[in-house]
Simulated assay, not measured.
Amino acid sequence: MKLNQLEMLIHLAEVGSVQAVAERMHRTQAAVSMALKNLEQEAGFKLFDRSGYRLALTQRGQQFLRQASEVIRQNQRLQSLTQQLRTGAEPQLRISYDYTCAPAVLFPALQQLQQTFPATELLLSGDSQLRSLRKIRDGEAELALCPWLPVFRQHGDFETVRVRPFELLIVVAPALLQQAGLVELAASHPAAIKVSRQDLLDLPMLIPQNQDVGIDLDIILRMPGQQRIRVNDSITQRELLLAGMGWGIIPGDLVGDAIAQQMLRPIDIPGFINQVNLEVHMVRSAERLAGPAERLIWQYFAGAHGDTSSDASGEY
């Protein structure tokens, strides 16, 4: 039995189709089908129930899957240990951060890393929503910085440490209110502007496209079908808000300076949720052995907050 056959079995249990496994592992569908067929022949008993629309594991197949998953985890640990014994600190450390999280929170820890392990190359990548977590799960990154919800545990076996609060605000440019004839609202209320639901019906609403974030903003806002502009990243959304193209919900970190200069103003909608409070977490795989460089970054945040947990979670 080969490790890649076991990996295909694990992916198949998650996605339920040979085609999806082939796409995930960048193989042809025929190659995946043949590898799984050979695995079943080597096992000597039926792994799959082929009677339904989707492939399902038999009872014996499920028992086999549990042991196969442990073999893959042990292999990942062995590879990690081998690299550390051979090279000392990791030659590269890959860190993914969600676009909604300002990466500057990482910089003090990265400066410590540069001083302690100058030969370790840092690879930083911005990713949308759950792609950061999938990179951790698939071994494409060692650490991820992202907003955290308990539901994300269904995507992998993760450990997390709290980094800081994460706040989503509903904001608008005063100029947009003035254009809509709501001059009095734009000029008053030095803090949050109280805007009625009716006031917003004729104004465009800026919201993210569906990016598998785990938060349904339509449900949170519960607003009817007024004109909407959907964007796929928070930076573009910020620019549209500043240009008076609409009102919307956005991470507070990205608009704090604009709010301070009153280029944007928070909105208070009576009877509606006006803020969403989560937490930004540092996330890593619980199935890998961390190298020295990775441990340094992890301990920087664990030491600052003392809140390392495989069950840490944010509320909203």
Rank of each mutant, 00 (worst) to 15 (best):
L240V: 04
I250G: 00
F166Y: 12
I297E: 13
P292T: 12
A191Y: 02
Q76F: 01
L143E: 05
S128C: 00
Q115N: 15
A187F: 03
R164D: 12
L47Q: 08
D212C: 06
A260V: 01
Q63I: 05
G244D: 10
G181L: 11
I219N: 05
T116L: 13
V71W: 09
L3I: 12
G246W: 02
E70W: 04
G303L: 11
I269M: 11
R77C: 13
G248R: 14
M8N: 13
H281N: 14
I220V: 12
Q261C: 08
L264N: 08
V171P: 06
L177E: 01
R134V: 02
L169F: 12
A286N: 10
G44Q: 03
K37P: 06
L145N: 06
R50F: 10
R230F: 01
L85G: 02
G61S: 13
F272W: 04
M1F: 08
F166G: 02
E121S: 15
E140S: 12
S80R: 07
A175G: 09
R228W: 04
R73I: 09
M223Q: 09
G44W: 04
G126N: 06
E184W: 06
L221S: 01
L176Y: 01
G271P: 15
S313T: 11
I10R: 07
R288P: 00
S234A: 04
A286Q: 12
D218P: 01
Q41R: 12
W247N: 01
W247M: 06
G271E: 13
M282W: 11
L149G: 07
Q129V: 00
A30Q: 10
Q198P: 06
I193R: 01
A56G: 10
E142S: 10
I95P: 06
E14P: 01
L133T: 01
E142C: 10
G252A: 15
A43E: 13
G44I: 03
I219S: 08
T120F: 11
D212E: 09
M25R: 15
Q211I: 03
